[in-house]
């Protein structure tokens, strides 16, 4: 399967195709996150919708994992290969067109990879701040309650549906309180700043990546390419800002001060 690594141009195609899959996901993720500004109901509903996708969620997760692994493996292989193709360095070297973002793709990429692992443990697995991960939103028959109601019984223990559970406190529905988890998580300034730095690196990576994708797959016409290069930089800014505005707003108390 990894025979393609023997061909530098095919490896580059793999970089471009897996990269654009990651960019499409990242875009959806950034837009999804922004729903936090619509309030708790919107965000938790969205999260519950994603969780409810069932097998589609797993198809998406496996697809992303494959794309990410191929992207990382190929990039490391290419980097080593390319490094060896220029073993002797110049005493004096001036770069004219190669900007910092293009020359640091592997480093920003590897830092993003490390961050993504942390991020998954933090918000998807819940092992980094388990105290924030455990919150649930409960819907009982009479009202919607924010805190876990001591009189209510959780969904799982209702299977036998005995009489004691029937009443105003019966839990009709419960869902993960993502809003609370995110707000409490980002109230920790160390975590917020770590996230902000990571998404700035991501934006930097993307500012080179978008136009690189077009060039690699052969869509470089003089009519559009200056625009594609501008789009690439703008997209990097857009992604970085769309992500970092969430921890920043929480840190500044603009949202989530009621949690």
């Amino acid at each position: 399967m990894f025979k393609y690594l023997n061909h530098v141009v095919i490896s580059k195609f793999v970089m471009a195709i897996t990269g654009i899959i990651l960019i499409l996901f990242i875009t959806g993720h950034a837009l999804g996150n922004l729903q936090i500004f619509l309030g708790k109901e919107a965000l938790n509903k969205y999260a519950a919708f994603l969780q409810g996708l069932g097998e589609f969620l797993w198809i998406e997760r496996i697809g992303l994992l494959v794309a990410a692994l191929l992207h990382i493996i190929t990039s490391i292989y290419l980097k080593l290969y390319n490094y060896n193709a220029r073993p002797d360095k110049y005493v004096v070297k001036r770069y004219i067109k190669a900007k910092l973002n293009s020359r640091t793709m592997i480093w920003t990429g590897l830092m993003i990879a490390a961050f993504v692992i942390y991020h998954l443990l933090h918000f998807t697995v819940g092992s980094i701040q388990p105290e924030n991960y455990k919150y649930k939103e409960i819907y009982t028959q009479n009202a919607y309650s924010v805190e876990y109601n001591a009189n209510a019984t959780s969904l799982s223990s209702q299977d036998n549906d005995n009489d004691a559970n029937i009443g105003v406190n019966k839990i009709l529905y419960e869902r993960h309180d993502v809003y609370k988890m995110v707000v409490l998580g980002f109230k920790n300034p160390y975590i917020s700043i770590f996230y902000i730095v990571a998404v700035i690196l991501l934006g930097f990576h993307i500012s080179h990546a978008v136009q690189s994708f077009f060039q690699t797959l052969g869509w470089n016409s003089p009519k559009y390419f200056t625009w594609i290069e501008k789009l690439s930089v703008a997209y990097g800014y857009f992604i970085a800002i769309a992500f970092l505005i969430v921890p920043l707003s929480i840190l500044l108390g603009i949202i989530g001060s009621n949690v």
């Binding site: 580059k12 290419l78 770069y95 004219i96 190669a98 136009q211 690699t216 016409s221």
Partner: peptide, 25 residues
């Protein structure tokens, strides 16, 4: 020879100003 990382240094150095769009092609 190594592979292309789209640095575009080649185009900047080329004494005949050959464009990287030929690489895309």
């Amino acid at each position: 020879f190594g592979g292309c990382s789209n640095y575009y240094e080649c185009e900047a150095a080329c004494p005949k100003n050959i464009s990287v769009r030929f690489i895309a092609k």
